[in-house]
């Protein structure tokens, strides 16, 4: 297990618990989560649906205060959205501002950060180019396909030059072919930029294909079932990686864990 107390530890989550509401109607979404990521790491988080993955991500992003426990980024406790972090949300159509063009959407956070105009122009152009959208800066997001819209959201996050990038099931709403392209895009960007990436997904194959580590979450109330190290070659390819026997072994293992998590929940329901 490669968790906690390494010197280059960037993000650390300790004893995180989140309960929605209070009294008898309270729901415990996350029970006790502890893990850490090193700088430059790509960590995927999988779990059955309703496992509190989004709750966890919102707590890390400083958008939701945890009930107890602590999230630290660079040893500073996260109490609101921290500097140097960007989030790509699942719902690109609602995350992008429809009244701004593609370029303006990417530009706005940079403006807010106080980046100089010339530098902004360069960052917008480069990031749109990096996601393969250099030709549509003046279109509106709603004129683009779903996959292209999510590329805009990724470009916006990349242009922001974060040290850590959180992605919350970013490809759940796009078709399979686009999804494969976007997975490769994310791997490629992560390699080139050397950022830390935390990628939440419900898709086991996607988690293994992308990650260096896969954190498998239990069903609600959530704990970390296992921290799986993905010992696949660094250079990955949709065809060869996915046909690698090791890939299959990992998938079977993680799949088993997720099934176990679901059964655990079913058993708890039956007992209740």
């Amino acid at each position: 297990m490669t968790t906690t107390t390494s010197t280059d530890e960037l993000l650390s989550v300790r004893g995180l618990r989140k309960v929605y509401g209070s009294g008898p109607g309270a729901t415990e979404a996350v029970r006790d989560l502890t893990f850490a990521t090193r700088a430059g790491e790509m960590v995927c988080i999988v779990g059955p649906s309703g496992a509190g993955k989004t709750t966890l991500l919102r707590c890390i992003a400083g958008l939701l205060p945890p009930t107890s426990g602590e999230v630290t980024l660079d040893r500073h406790p996260v109490s609101g959205p921290p500097e140097g972090m960007a989030v790509v949300f699942q719902d690109y159509a609602r995350s992008l501002f429809p009244w701004l063009t593609v370029a303006q959407n990417v530009d706005l956070p940079l403006r807010e950060k106080g980046v100089a105009r010339a530098e902004r122009r360069r960052l917008v152009a480069e990031s749109l180019d990096a996601v393969g959208l250099a030709d549509v800066p003046n279109s509106y997001p709603w004129q683009l396909s779903g996959g292209m819209q999510q590329r805009v959201a990724i470009a916006r996050a990349v242009a922001y030059e974060p040290r850590i990038l959180l992605m919350d099931e970013p490809f759940a709403a796009v078709d399979a072919q686009t999804r494969a392209d976007l997975e490769d895009l994310v791997r490629d960007l992560w390699h080139r930029l050397g950022i830390t990436l935390l990628f939440v997904t419900h898709d086991i194959d996607e988690a293994i294909y992308l990650g260096q580590r896969v954190l498998v979450l239990s069903a609600r109330p959530t704990v970390v079932l296992e921290d799986v190290t993905v010992d696949l070659p660094e250079t990955r390819d949709q065809l060869t990686t996915r046909n690698d026997p090791r890939f299959h072994a990992l998938r079977t293992h993680v799949h088993g864990l997720v099934q176990q998590a679901k059964r655990g929940e079913a058993a708890r329901r039956a007992a209740a």
């Binding site: 919102r58 958008l63 609101g80 960007a86 949300f89 609602r94 706005l108 807010e112 922001y160």
Partner: peptide, 18 residues
Amino acid sequence: VDPVARDTARSFRFRHRT
């Protein structure tokens, strides 16, 4: 105001005025 758009604005640390 859309909650996702609001989260986006918050995560990029937009000031109140912005």
